[in-house]
């Protein structure tokens, strides 16, 4: 039977502790710890709203068991930047109208960041493939593509990606 376990999660650079049963997903655990910038859209990996970086790569936190994530480096949207020092993706999403209802935005920016870490100058096709697991119902993705490319250009200039 499922027994609870106390685990340490490293979220946005800080150690946090949660006592959770085996079936608790990383999505649920993170939201339970107050990281509500991680959004729940489908709980089965179809929409990408819950994407977080685990050791630098975007994963669906709904398809990750929290206990399995112990010790990994977890980054949520809030971990990318602050209002005082926003990440270039956050800046461009806000300024270029890439967030409408905003519910897909956390996962969309995380997926974009994961792409840009591997590929700082993605082609349009590469960008579309990278974001195909993040559904958006408001924007038709058009301004999202613009915002990611704008941020990528800024990041290439400032050397935030190598």
């Amino acid at each position: 039977m499922s027994t609870e376990k106390t685990i340490n999660l490293r979220v946005n650079g800080r150690e946090e502790t949660a006592t959770i049963p085996p079936h608790r997903t990383l999505l649920e655990a993170l939201r339970g710890l107050g990281h509500v910038d991680v959004k729940c859209g489908c709980e089965k990996g179809d929409c990408g709203a819950c994407a977080v970086l685990v050791d630098g790569e975007a994963v669906d936190s709904c398809l990750t068991l929290a206990q399995s994530a112990e010790g990994r480096e977890i980054t949520t949207l809030q971990g990318l930047g602050t209002p005082e020092a926003p990440h270039p993706l956050q800046q461009s999403f806000a300024e270029l109208g890439a967030a409408q209802c905003g519910y897909c935005t956390p996962g969309m920016i995380i997926a974009s960041e994961s792409l840009l870490r591997k590929n700082p100058a993605p082609s349009d096709e590469e960008l579309r493939i990278a974001l195909s697991g993040n559904l958006c119902r408001c924007t038709g993705y058009v301004k999202i593509f613009e915002a990611v490319q704008a941020a990528a250009a800024v990041m290439r200039q400032t050397g935030e990606t190598k």
Binding site: A58, V59, D60, S132, G133, N134
Partner: peptide
Amino acid sequence: ARVFAGQMVRNT
């Protein structure tokens, strides 16, 4: 692999 699900699923 290119048309396999979405990025997050491909990553895991």
